[in-house]
Write a protein that binds this DNA or RNA. Structure first.
Lengths: 220, 220
DNA sequence: TTTTCCATACCCGGATCGCGGTATATTTTT
DNA sequence: AAAAATATACCGCGATCCGGGTATGGAAAA
């Protein structure tokens, strides 16, 4: 896998946001040691980085810590996404808990690297990101996958019949019983009967509960 | 990153499910060329693989194609997960469309590799998977991330006040107005007023709609 | 062929909801 | 200091919902 060679006068601009001075400088050196990358903008806070972007600097990649004084890195992503949508944000942090990962990726981070393991192949990760890939080590990737499976869960089976599922669907779409009856061309009483059966099967006692359960458990 | 060395008599068992004979054999060779891996079980269908597992074979890793005669690979994952929960499934396919990736990962795949790009580092990916990581190239990882951001969208702001959000939360949790009043130690009339304001802000006209909208747009 | 499941339809009484008001006291903003 | 926003509380009417029934015809399963 040979990365496309970048002319020296057209290197990829990487911005670094990291409050620890020593670490910041060491990462900056690492970046500048890669011939395809350069970093002339390294800041100790999101606020400082945001100012630089507002003044017209548009880095291809923003390497950003999470635990920062003032605005944290997750919030930071949102601001950078808004100010400079083309810039790709990559988290670089010691935290590998689900919440931080989840939030960072939800706000549009293009990668999530751990400080512990990143120094060796950071250059490779950066070029991956540039070519539209995502920077993630297998450990983080596994956590992301776990969220997926958790989120899209077992899909419990309550033994709903076809008609019942149909009615559940319309209910979730905001129709009341009368409208559902009209839509399906059946009597309101029939809708009522179906709904009662649905209640029994899902063990709930109101439309609210049904809709809530259906959406939370993705029954529809 | 030095992988733990495996004694030769304790290699990792990889099962292959792939209908194309040539490709199957080439992958099998590739696996057997890795000193830490071995593959004595390569089948042309999920059904055959399932039978092997039912007869007592428990591979550490199952490499499985998607497009198969009979049961497809996505369905296959589900069966293997049930028959041998400890076995990790990795998709190996030419399809890189969102639906296939999404479904595979939802059903608990530990990785998703493209045939085009996997042959070189398949051995590394396998050891990653064994150590709890996920096998994914940056291209696939980026698609997974995109699903994340799509899923957790813009988060519209409707200008709900603190109290209103609180009531919305309780409503989504299945409480009716009377219970909410009790929970918050305020009058039922007050809950009513708040709810009316919520309706106006979200532009809906029933609790169903509120719950549905709140869950769909992840307002809570 | 009998039995069970499914979809259909109806009734009623009490509870709950939706919406139209009005009103007051604090807190925040201007 | 005046204005706006927020949280609180109350009333009544008509619509809707919930749970308890009963009932029938057809399709699927035993």
């Amino acid at each position: 896998m040979k990365p496309a060679e970048q002319p020296l006068d057209n290197q990829i601009n990487v911005m670094i946001i990291e409050d620890d001075e020593l670490y910041r400088e060491s990462i900056q050196e690492l970046i500048n040691d890669c011939e395809s990358l350069q970093c002339n903008h390294a800041y100790e806070s999101c606020e400082a980085g945001i100012q630089a972007v507002e003044e017209g600097f548009a880095p291809e990649i923003i390497l950003i810590d999470i635990d920062l004084p003032g605005m944290n890195g997750i919030e930071g992503i949102r601001h950078f996404k808004q100010l400079s949508p083309a810039s790709k944000s990559v988290m670089l942090t010691v935290f590998d808990d689900d919440d931080n990962i989840f939030n960072a990726l939800c706000y549009g981070a293009s990668g999530y690297l751990l400080k512990s393991a990143s120094s060796e192949n950071i250059c490779q990760y950066m070029t991956d990101v540039l070519s539209g890939g995502a920077a993630m080590n297998p450990h983080i990737a596994a956590k992301v996958l776990k969220m997926f499976t958790q989120y899209s869960q077992p899909k419990k089976e309550y033994g709903l019949t076809g008609r019942e599922k149909e009615i559940l669907q319309l209910l979730v779409n905001g129709m009341n019983k009368k409208h559902i009856a009209g839509e399906l061309c059946i009597s309101l009483f029939t809708v009522d009967t179906h709904l009662k059966n649905i209640y029994a099967k899902l063990q709930v006692h109101s439309q609210i509960d049904v809709v809530s359960k259906a959406l939370k458990e993705r029954l529809i």
